[in-house]
């Protein structure tokens, strides 16, 4: 999946100013950046929920345009888990499965994240962390080629976070391409093969984790990023 020179503005507000990146099989790309740098907009463009003004997004070598079938290959985890509130978790899962019309394997995920006791509960009664687990379940229950994750770890407890990381590495080994946005720098440092740092709608840095550290002579990634941000503020 390739994004090339993408521009998007909402009325006068220019959110993305020529963003390019690519997703490769077996690699995890982390998109970092302060609030309002365009991370979520970028992801929504890749899913066709937001329509870019300029530039090109292609999946499996085809421009996505107004196409929708390419979304069969994407497991998407939205940032804010908003569900039809009166459905039970089990109903939601089987509905999404039916709508996607693809084989789904969720029993393993349900036990991995301890969702068993919640399956019969309506979504409005779930806590924030449990909702996030349901969100993860919906994104990963299909055998997708790409995973696009917007803040996947928000609200997870340490144990679930650990299990999430294991699962992600597992998927990576299976040759899946992963794109995730995060504010947790050490997560990116630990998991990602590549880091894209977005700043005010532009790619400020794109490269390996080690490269970014080297640029800032051996600082850890968190310090390197704090450094970039404070430089930006003073500028």
């Amino acid at each position: 999946m390739i994004v090339r020179d993408l521009y998007k503005s909402y009325r006068k507000h220019q959110v993305l100013k020529g963003v390019s990146l690519g997703l490769d099989p077996g690699r995890i790309t982390a998109v970092l950046g302060p609030n309002g740098s365009g991370k979520t907009t970028l992801i929504k463009c890749m899913l066709g929920m937001v329509i870019g003004q300029q530039g090109e997004i292609s999946a499996n070598g085809k421009n996505i345009g107004h196409d929708y079938l390419y979304r069969k290959d994407i497991g998407y985890l939205p940032q804010i888990a908003r569900f039809p509130e009166n459905l039970k978790v089990r109903e939601l899962v089987s509905m999404v499965k039916d709508l996607r019309n693809q084989p789904a394997n969720y029993e393993e995920l349900v036990s991995r994240f301890g969702l068993g006791p919640f399956m019969q509960k309506p979504l409005r009664n779930l806590s924030g962390g449990t909702r996030q687990k349901v969100n993860i379940l919906l994104a990963f229950m299909f055998d997708s080629r790409y995973y696009i994750l917007d803040e996947p770890t928000a609200g997870l407890d340490p144990l679930s976070l650990q299990r999430f990381k294991e699962m992600l590495l597992n998927e990576k080994q299976k040759g899946k391409a992963v794109l995730m946005t995060t504010h947790m720098v050490h997560l990116a440092e630990e998991m990602a093969d590549e880091v894209v740092f977005l700043l005010e709608g532009k790619v400020y840095f794109h490269g390996g984790v080690q490269e970014l550290k080297d640029t800032y002579d051996g600082m850890n990634l968190e310090a390197a990023i704090a450094n970039i941000l404070s430089l930006q503020e003073h500028a």
Partner: peptide, 16 residues
Amino acid sequence: NSKEFIDLLLALPLPR
């Protein structure tokens, strides 16, 4: 009221 539902559907392989 269906905004959540619609958001969910938009990310699935369905035409708008």
